[in-house]
Structure formats: C-alpha cells, structure tokens
Design a protein around this nucleic acid. Structure first.
Length: 182
DNA sequence: GATAAGATGTTA
DNA sequence: AACATCTTATCA
C-alpha cells in the first residue's frame, strides 16, 4: 500500500500527467475488498483540441472535465462501455487523462487491457463520476508506485479518434502485455 | 423530436 | 471488416 497521490500531481500540463501517471497504482474498493492495478497506458485530452469532449465548451456530459484536478470523469461510450479519466490542470480548463490499461496487482481480477474492459472489471460506472481520487475514504483512489524508466515509455498517437489524430498524446510502457491493441 | 457519430470490444 | 447497442450533442 503506497502513499496516496496528492492533488498537485494532477495540476501539471495534461500530456505530462499522462506520462507521469504510468507506473502509478489505481485502487478500487468494493465492499471490503481492494483491487490494485499499475497504470501502463494513458492518453491526454484538453479543450484546445477537437477530439476532446470539452472542445465545444461545457455540456451536460463533459462538465466534469472543467472541474478541479484529481476528480474522476466517468462517461459511457458506444452505449455499453464506461471510460475513466482523471481531471487535470486548473479548474475552468477542460482537460483530463484517460486511463487506458492497467496491470493487475491483485490476484482476483484480470482482463484490464483497454479502457472499457478495465472499467467493467473494476465496476467503474457513472456513479463514480466526480469522485475525488485524492481522498483516502473514496471508493477509487491512486497511490504512488514504481517510477517507469523514461527509456521504457513509448510516446505515440491516440487510439480511436479521427480529429487531432496526429497529436502524440498517448503514453504506454514498452513491452507490457496489458497495453491495449498490442 | 430526429439524427448521426462515438476516447470500444468481440466476432468472423 | 462488420457489428453490437444507446448515450450524447446538435439541429430543427
């Protein structure tokens, strides 16, 4: 059990947060069980580029993206999957980091190599939207883990988008078998 | 009220 | 490469 990540970690430039969050540990409490997974893939989204939900301003769905750093943004996509983001930068600026894949550190779950799959495995739904992941009595929080050697961080383009597809805002751990789309 | 597209995953 | 499946944003 590591130290919980404080809010200031998330207030940096969003692509930097997406890179630095690799190796950190996503924790989910369900009843009295805690599930932990090392983040091995993440992407940055900000209101400055058109693939981001916040690009066209505040809407009912994306209003969470404009709130304070360190809260969860959970939304439904394709009518059947949820995706988990952590809000970054300053309140009023729409931005966040999409958690795309985790490596299970607890024995009793797996199948976490994709944003929809990890939410399904950890029962992350819209009920957790706006959860403060910096709070130690939250059902969802992040802890410090092992720093990933910068040589082993791959920086490439994001997956599943058509707009701003050339931005190199996807980061993942080289050779990790839980990264989506191998 | 209608419509088109979507930060995905599974199957063929 | 197709499709499952339905919310969301946008327009009328």
């Amino acid at each position: 059990m590591g130290k919980i990540i404080e809010r200031s970690f998330y207030t940096s430039y969003t692509p930097d947060v997406a890179k630095n969050i690799l190796g950190m540990v996503l924790c989910r409490r369900i009843n009295n069980n805690v599930f932990r997974g090392k983040i091995v893939e993440a992407e940055a989204y900000t209101q400055d580029e058109p693939s981001c939900h916040a690009f066209r301003g505040v809407t009912k769905r994306c209003q969470t993206m404009f709130k304070k750093a360190g809260i969860a943004y959970v939304y439904m996509t394709y009518g059947m999957y949820h995706c988990l983001n952590i809000i970054t930068e300053n309140e009023g600026f729409g931005s966040g980091v999409l958690i795309r894949a985790i490596e299970p550190l607890s024995e009793n779950f797996s199948n976490t190599n994709g944003p929809g799959k990890l939410c399904r495995e950890l029962n992350i739904t819209r009920e957790l939207n706006e959860t403060d992941v910096c709070s130690d009595n939250s059902p969802l929080w992040l802890e410090y883990g092992n720093i990933i050697d910068p040589e082993n961080i791959i920086n490439t383009t994001r997956i599943g988008i058509k707009l701003a597809a050339d931005l190199p805002w996807r980061f993942y751990v080289r050779g990790n078998k839980f990264v989506s789309k191998p």
